[in-house]
Design a protein around this nucleic acid. Structure first.
Length: 496
RNA sequence: GCCCCGGUCGUAUAGCCAGGUCAAGUAUACCGGCCUUUCGAGCCGGGGACCCGGGUUCAAAUCCCGGCCGGGGCACCA
């Protein structure tokens, strides 16, 4: 083992109020869309802190809006977190605890901390923005209880009556202005069917769940910042302990749209091919473009800060880590873009063993040449007739004549002559056509669509690339690191 | 509109809370060199930043005020 440079590996900063052995965090996805890199990074943070101090991490689906939840997304998150190397200790869905929410809701009503409100959605919104309570707030407990039971029994339809928390209608923190905590949703839940029609809203479900899961640290993005106070208030009404909050700005990447709405629109307009288009930052996309999970983990440790300043990461930061991680195991192969055929005069039939990696640990493949090879047009153009090139591991070739797409040369099977450009080559007899997708930024710096975000490079490669398994990394010499894609002889470039 | 939060090399960060050791460290990107039968990896070197203006202080990236710019919240979504 060669020891790497002793660059002090950056560790995660200490977690406030962390008691070793007793740090409980959580992964709280809403199963309403595909998982993306931001979820993975945030999940990794929750996981790594739990690992760092010792404790537990929950996977808890925030699925209390039957209208948004879709069954296929639960697995998208399970798969995504697993892929990212996260092992969770417990798993549950908020929708598993409906009876519990009903019980706590009743408790809040009895203690005068919640009331049944029959205002229209519009009225609620207006009064909240004005900071003025409505008539229902002062109702006696019995009336509230009666209405609440009516909600549960189906005596009201959606939107007619909802349960509101007694907060602070005049607070400058608008989330505190008597938020709705239970509402009727007349749509079956994908997991629970039509068993329930009264559902908790996010703040109620999350604050109760965080407490009963024993969550000690809530690490989340800062759009939730204003809800800390609300969620603490809910728990105080229920005599439940509060967690420590650590909130940070969401993770964005240069040129890459993050919102589901935006991505969906790009798909519908045919700008990208789907949720796993390599230009996107969904888990499916970054896997397809060859980012390995260890790179994500190291990225979190090295570059992520738990601050509230805006972050737009450059992909280069991730690529550099990824490149180092895959370099040792990515076999070197020859891919020639814009191929020019060179006829090698009097070369006969040759067989050479070409190492699969300069580290010598990956073995070699045998290439057979009978008189003709493909080389990149650019190299031929640069040297011109009379010039010479080194065909890596094969020999030195002096070009006699060069015409469009064709050239004649004399091969000298000898050690490399100093000063010659060393290039990759593909024997004509075993050349297969290969297509490489090169993803670039979808968005320009000004936010407009980059019209040339996907470059498709065609060329030829040695036959061995055909038998590569999907997802395998290779380095096409002098071209870049690529991953075998799912269609035959197709690759996606990860990075140079 | 109202309410929060933030602004350190191109990018991401360290430093800020406990002012001096910061003529600001690191990574990446970029430039140059070495090495290499790849334009990869590795090694060496280089340029590059405290948003602006005031104030406090012997001393400000660090504290205070204002401005500018950026992000977020104001759902019977999460």
């Amino acid at each position: 083992m060669v020891e790497r440079k002793v660059e002090a590996k950056r560790r995660l900063p200490p977690l406030p109020n962390a008691v070793p052995g007793n740090v409980v965090t959580r992964l709280p996805p809403e199963p309403s869309g595909y998982m993306h890199i931001g979820h993975a990074l945030s999940g990794l943070l929750n996981y790594l802190y739990k690992e760092m101090y010792g404790g537990k991490v929950w996977l808890r689906f925030e699925d209390t809006d039957p209208r948004k939840v879709r069954p296929e997304y639960y697995d998208s998150y399970r798969d995504g977190y697993s892929w990212a190397g996260i092992k969770w200790d417990h798993e549950k869905c908020n929708s598993d605890d409906m009876e519990l929410f009903y019980r706590y809701a009743a408790e809040l009503i009895e203690s005068g901390k919640a009331y049944a409100c029959a205002c229209s959605r519009e009225t609620v919104r207006r009064l909240r923005s004005e900071g003025v309570p409505c008539e229902h707030r002062a109702q006696p407990v019995e009336v509230n209880m009666e209405l609440w039971e009516g909600m549960l029994e189906g005596r009201f339809s959606e939107g007619e009556v909802s349960l509101r928390l007694v907060g602070d209608m005049a607070s400058t923190n608008t989330t505190l202005r008597d938020p709705v905590i239970m509402r009727i949703v007349e749509k079956p839940h994908p997991l629970k069917g039509d068993r329930y029609r009264v559902w908790p809203t996010y703040d109620f479900a999350a604050s109760v769940e965080d407490a009963i899961c024993g969550v000690t640290h809530v690490l989340r993005t800062s759009e939730f910042m204003l809800r800390d106070e609300l969620q603490d208030l809910i728990r105080s009404y229920l005599s439940m302990p509060n967690p420590t909050y650590v909130e940070y700005e969401r993770f964005e990447f240069e040129g890459t749209p993050v919102s589901r709405r935006e991505i969906r629109s790009l798909i519908e307009r045919g700008v990208v091919s789907g949720w796993d288009d390599p230009r996107l930052a969904t888990i499916a996309s970054i896997r397809r473009r060859g980012i390995v999970p260890e790179a994500l983990r190291e990225f979190v440790e090295r570059y992520v800060a738990l601050t509230q300043s805006r972050k737009v990461y450059s992909w280069d930061l991730l690529y550099a880590i990824n490149r180092r991680l895959i370099d040792d195991r990515a076999p070197r192969m020859f891919f020639v873009k814009d191929p020019v055929r060179i006829r090698l005069e009097g070369a006969g039939v040759l067989e050479v063993d070409v190492p699969l990696h300069p580290n010598g640990r990956l073995g070699a493949r045998r290439l057979r040449v009978s008189g003709e090879v493909y080389v990149p047009a650019e190299d031929v153009r640069t040297v011109g007739p009379g010039g010479a090139l080194r065909l890596k591991f094969l020999g030195n070739v002096t070009l006699r004549s060069v015409s469009d797409g064709d050239a004649e040369g004399v091969l000298d099977v000898a050690p490399p002559s100093p000063g010659l450009r060393v290039i990759q080559w593909v024997p004509v007899e075993e050349a297969v056509s290969v297509k490489v997708l090169i993803p670039g930024p979808l968005l320009n710096p000004d936010g407009t669509l980059n019209e040339s975000s996907l470059e498709v490079v065609e060329g030829v490669a040695e036959r061995a690339v055909s038998s590569l398994e999907v997802g395998t990394h290779v380095q096409f010499e002098r071209f870049g690191y690529c991953v075998k894609d799912r269609s035959p002889n197709a690759f996606v470039m990860a990075h140079r």
